[in-house]
């Protein structure tokens, strides 16, 4: 809502986290966001509420309290089993109008980045995408939202001075999930899907998930990525072994994807995914700018390449010069059994 007067802000209270559900399970980004919301809510003398929308999700509410939630709004309905943008947005808009949160945050996941822009328009609210930092202006309660733009080349701080609630999507793996406090509990509120919510919605026909299609790069701690120098699909088999050993995910450059060695879902870079993991290991990736914009915000960048002069080897924190086909198997052998 657009506010006419500053005092109207007082009608809006509490920080909401919209829980991220994949395959019926609450995802770690939800815990990270509860952790991020907790100090902000404390600063505003308000509470952290989690909106748990899905099918068969009620039993997962308890764990949300252990991460720091005060209240959980549960909307458990089998019609919410897949991701139906139009339905979830109508439910969320109704809840927002009823309870008037001051702030709504959601993971910058595929679902969050489809759902929240729709909700922001429907409620006439400002939304900042893909934030990596959140703070509060003590003067007026405005959320100070920091986000990278231009592939991480500019950090912009954005606020929403005259609309409430203020909304952000937040990148997975950027905020730290708190240690759960198993003694902590809270209150649940039951809400329902109304029949009118199901007018004008898409129909999900089939949902596929298998180990083959799961490439959750955004949620990975370590990404092992391969480029043109991997020479073929067999090279990626080797990277998968390393990824399995360190609990990481496999990424790829556009060159490797376009060569058909690995599916597009693995592509990192401008026309693929932007990732911000703890560790990024670039194997035989020369580092064209379109690739670098997709991974330059990772904490630790390691490059392995024969050629020491590539842009990737120059920008890396650790540059290992040598044949990736000799070095990677040695790394696999060196890593202790975990």
């Amino acid at each position: 809502m657009r506010l006419r007067q500053e005092y109207e802000k007082a009608e809006y209270k509490n920080i909401w986290v919209v829980a991220e559900i994949l395959s019926g399970k609450v995802q770690p980004v939800t815990h990270e966001l509860i952790g991020a919301a907790r100090p902000l809510a404390d600063q505003r003398n308000s509470q952290v509420w989690v909106v748990l929308m899905g099918s068969g999700v009620t039993s997962q509410a308890g764990s949300l309290f252990t991460f720091g939630a005060d209240k959980v709004i549960i909307v458990d309905d089998e019609r919410l089993s897949g991701f139906v943008d139009e339905l979830e947005s109508k439910v969320l808009v109704r809840l927002i109008e009823k309870y008037k949160p001051e702030t709504v945050i959601c993971g910058a996941t595929t679902r969050g980045r489809a759902l929240i822009p729709r909700v922001a328009v429907m409620t006439n609210c400002g939304l900042t995408a893909d934030c990596t930092g959140l703070g509060i202006d003590p003067e007026n309660g405005d959320l100070l939202q920091t986000r990278p733009a231009f592939g991480g080349n500019i950090m912009a701080t954005i606020r929403c001075p005259s609309h409430r609630p203020q909304m952000s999507t937040v990148r997975p793996r950027v905020m730290k999930a708190p240690e759960p406090d198993l003694n902590r509990t809270g209150e649940t509120i039951q809400e329902a899907v109304e029949d009118s919510d199901t007018a004008k919605i898409k129909r999900i026909i089939e949902i596929f998930h298998s180990d083959e299609t799961v490439v959750n790069l955004a949620d990975a701690r370590i990404i092992i990525s391969g480029g043109r120098g991997m020479k073929g699909p067999a090279g990626f088999d080797m990277l998968r072994k390393l990824a399995a050993k360190v609990g990481g995910a496999v990424g790829a450059s556009r060159a490797a994807v376009d060569a058909g060695w690995i599916p597009y879902a693995h592509q990192v870079g401008q026309t693929g995914q932007t990732v911000q993991t703890k560790v990024y290991i670039a194997c035989a990736i020369s580092g064209q700018i379109q690739h670098l914009v997709g991974m330059q915000s990772c904490d630790l960048i390691i490059a392995i390449d024969k050629n020491p002069d590539t842009p990737m080897m120059q920008m890396a924190d650790i540059a290992v010069q040598g044949d990736v086909f000799e070095i990677v198997p040695e790394i696999i052998a060196q890593i202790p059994k975990l």
Binding site: T110, K202, R203, E206, F208, H209, V214, V215, N216
Partner: peptide, 11 residues
């Protein structure tokens, strides 16, 4: 549609 955990087909 592509998702983090696979894909779905919708009408």
């Amino acid at each position: 549609r592509m998702h983090e955990d696979g894909y779905d087909v919708c009408e």
